[in-house]
Amino acid sequence: MMLQKGDKAPDFKLFATPDRQFSLSELKGKNVILAFYPADWSPVCSDQMVLYNEMLKYFDKYNATILGISVDSKWCHLAFSDSRKLHFPLLADFEPKGEVSKLYGVYDEQQGESNRALFVIDKEGYVAWSYLSQVSVNPGADGILDALESITPKN
Protein backbone atom coordinates (compact mmCIF):
# COMPACT_ATOMS: atom_id res chain seq x y z
CA MET A 1 0.00 0.00 0.00
CA MET A 2 1.22 3.44 -0.86
CA LEU A 3 1.78 5.56 2.24
CA GLN A 4 -0.98 8.07 2.83
CA LYS A 5 -1.52 11.31 4.67
CA GLY A 6 -0.86 10.89 8.38
CA ASP A 7 1.55 7.94 8.00
CA LYS A 8 4.99 8.21 9.54
CA ALA A 9 7.56 8.59 6.75
CA PRO A 10 10.11 5.77 7.12
CA ASP A 11 13.70 6.92 7.38
CA PHE A 12 16.22 5.76 4.77
CA LYS A 13 19.84 6.20 3.81
CA LEU A 14 20.76 6.23 0.13
CA PHE A 15 23.64 7.39 -2.03
CA ALA A 16 23.14 10.88 -3.44
CA THR A 17 26.57 11.09 -5.07
CA PRO A 18 29.26 8.44 -5.49
CA ASP A 19 30.76 9.33 -2.12
CA ARG A 20 27.89 10.75 -0.10
CA GLN A 21 24.94 9.08 1.54
CA PHE A 22 21.84 10.98 2.42
CA SER A 23 19.24 10.17 5.06
CA LEU A 24 15.76 11.56 5.49
CA SER A 25 16.38 12.22 9.18
CA GLU A 26 19.08 14.75 8.23
CA LEU A 27 16.27 16.97 7.00
CA LYS A 28 14.25 17.02 10.22
CA GLY A 29 12.77 20.47 10.72
CA LYS A 30 12.28 20.98 6.99
CA ASN A 31 9.44 19.98 4.74
CA VAL A 32 10.57 17.34 2.27
CA ILE A 33 9.25 16.49 -1.17
CA LEU A 34 10.04 12.96 -2.34
CA ALA A 35 9.66 12.49 -6.07
CA PHE A 36 9.88 8.80 -6.98
CA TYR A 37 10.28 8.28 -10.73
CA PRO A 38 10.88 5.30 -13.02
CA ALA A 39 14.16 6.06 -14.76
CA ASP A 40 16.88 8.59 -15.47
CA TRP A 41 17.00 9.66 -19.15
CA SER A 42 13.45 8.67 -20.06
CA PRO A 43 11.57 11.58 -21.68
CA VAL A 44 8.82 12.09 -19.09
CA CYS A 45 11.19 11.77 -16.13
CA SER A 46 13.59 14.24 -17.71
CA ASP A 47 10.84 16.82 -18.21
CA GLN A 48 9.59 16.29 -14.69
CA MET A 49 13.03 16.71 -13.07
CA VAL A 50 13.83 19.71 -15.27
CA LEU A 51 10.57 21.32 -14.14
CA TYR A 52 11.36 20.75 -10.45
CA ASN A 53 14.81 22.18 -11.04
CA GLU A 54 13.12 25.46 -11.97
CA MET A 55 10.94 25.28 -8.88
CA LEU A 56 13.60 25.21 -6.16
CA LYS A 57 13.09 28.80 -5.09
CA TYR A 58 9.32 28.27 -4.86
CA PHE A 59 9.89 25.17 -2.70
CA ASP A 60 12.33 27.17 -0.63
CA LYS A 61 9.60 29.67 0.19
CA TYR A 62 7.84 26.85 2.01
CA ASN A 63 11.03 25.68 3.73
CA ALA A 64 10.96 22.58 1.55
CA THR A 65 13.68 20.46 -0.02
CA ILE A 66 13.11 18.14 -2.95
CA LEU A 67 14.72 14.73 -3.41
CA GLY A 68 14.38 12.64 -6.57
CA ILE A 69 14.51 8.85 -6.12
CA SER A 70 14.82 6.07 -8.68
CA VAL A 71 16.47 2.65 -8.85
CA ASP A 72 19.27 3.96 -11.08
CA SER A 73 22.80 3.78 -9.71
CA LYS A 74 24.71 6.70 -8.22
CA TRP A 75 26.92 6.98 -11.30
CA CYS A 76 23.94 7.04 -13.60
CA HIS A 77 22.36 9.76 -11.43
CA LEU A 78 25.58 11.76 -11.60
CA ALA A 79 25.66 11.69 -15.39
CA PHE A 80 21.93 12.45 -15.69
CA SER A 81 22.10 15.25 -13.16
CA ASP A 82 25.13 16.82 -14.90
CA SER A 83 23.47 16.58 -18.28
CA ARG A 84 20.29 18.31 -17.07
CA LYS A 85 22.14 20.70 -14.71
CA LEU A 86 20.01 19.63 -11.77
CA HIS A 87 20.55 21.42 -8.46
CA PHE A 88 18.86 18.95 -6.14
CA PRO A 89 19.86 15.44 -5.05
CA LEU A 90 18.88 12.30 -6.92
CA LEU A 91 18.98 9.30 -4.62
CA ALA A 92 19.91 5.81 -5.77
CA ASP A 93 17.44 3.17 -4.53
CA PHE A 94 19.84 0.67 -6.00
CA GLU A 95 20.99 -1.81 -3.34
CA PRO A 96 18.94 -3.64 -2.26
CA LYS A 97 17.08 -2.65 -5.38
CA GLY A 98 13.91 -0.67 -4.77
CA GLU A 99 14.00 -1.12 -0.99
CA VAL A 100 12.93 2.44 -0.18
CA SER A 101 10.35 2.51 -2.97
CA LYS A 102 8.86 -0.63 -1.42
CA LEU A 103 8.82 0.98 2.05
CA TYR A 104 6.73 3.80 0.58
CA GLY A 105 4.55 1.38 -1.38
CA VAL A 106 5.52 2.69 -4.80
CA TYR A 107 7.56 -0.10 -6.38
CA ASP A 108 6.51 -1.70 -9.65
CA GLU A 109 7.65 -5.33 -9.38
CA GLN A 110 6.95 -6.09 -13.03
CA GLN A 111 9.00 -3.26 -14.45
CA GLY A 112 11.59 -3.32 -11.69
CA GLU A 113 11.23 0.44 -11.33
CA SER A 114 9.70 2.94 -8.93
CA ASN A 115 6.27 4.26 -9.77
CA ARG A 116 5.87 7.93 -10.55
CA ALA A 117 4.79 9.09 -7.11
CA LEU A 118 5.01 12.24 -5.01
CA PHE A 119 5.10 12.64 -1.24
CA VAL A 120 5.17 15.81 0.81
CA ILE A 121 6.53 15.09 4.29
CA ASP A 122 6.11 17.65 7.05
CA LYS A 123 8.74 18.91 9.47
CA GLU A 124 7.82 16.27 12.04
CA GLY A 125 8.34 13.49 9.53
CA TYR A 126 4.73 12.62 8.69
CA VAL A 127 3.25 12.28 5.22
CA ALA A 128 1.15 15.39 4.55
CA TRP A 129 0.19 14.48 0.99
CA SER A 130 0.85 11.70 -1.48
CA TYR A 131 0.01 11.26 -5.12
CA LEU A 132 0.42 8.39 -7.56
CA SER A 133 0.69 9.55 -11.16
CA GLN A 134 0.27 7.52 -14.30
CA VAL A 135 3.71 6.45 -15.45
CA SER A 136 3.31 8.28 -18.77
CA VAL A 137 2.15 11.56 -17.23
CA ASN A 138 4.33 14.28 -15.78
CA PRO A 139 2.30 15.40 -12.75
CA GLY A 140 3.69 18.94 -12.70
CA ALA A 141 4.09 20.81 -9.42
CA ASP A 142 0.75 22.36 -8.56
CA GLY A 143 -0.22 19.50 -6.22
CA ILE A 144 3.07 19.87 -4.36
CA LEU A 145 2.59 23.63 -3.92
CA ASP A 146 -0.99 23.18 -2.71
CA ALA A 147 0.19 20.60 -0.17
CA LEU A 148 3.04 22.79 1.04
CA GLU A 149 0.66 25.71 1.35
CA SER A 150 -1.75 23.63 3.41
CA ILE A 151 0.92 22.75 6.00
CA THR A 152 2.44 26.21 6.22
CA PRO A 153 0.95 28.37 8.98
CA LYS A 154 -0.44 31.63 7.65
CA ASN A 155 1.09 34.80 8.99
Binding site: D47, Q48, V50, L51, E54, M55, Y58, N138, P139, G140, A141, D142, L145
Partner: peptide, 12 residues
Protein backbone atom coordinates in the same frame (compact mmCIF):
# COMPACT_ATOMS: atom_id res chain seq x y z
CA UNK B 1 3.55 34.12 -15.58
CA UNK B 2 5.71 31.13 -14.65
CA UNK B 3 4.02 30.74 -11.29
CA UNK B 4 0.56 30.95 -12.85
CA UNK B 5 1.68 28.17 -15.18
CA UNK B 6 2.74 25.96 -12.29
CA UNK B 7 -0.58 26.60 -10.53
CA UNK B 8 -2.44 25.75 -13.72
CA UNK B 9 -0.66 22.41 -14.02
CA UNK B 10 1.87 23.29 -16.74
CA UNK B 11 4.44 20.49 -16.76
CA UNK B 12 6.60 21.45 -19.73
Amino acid sequence: DFESGIRSGVNG
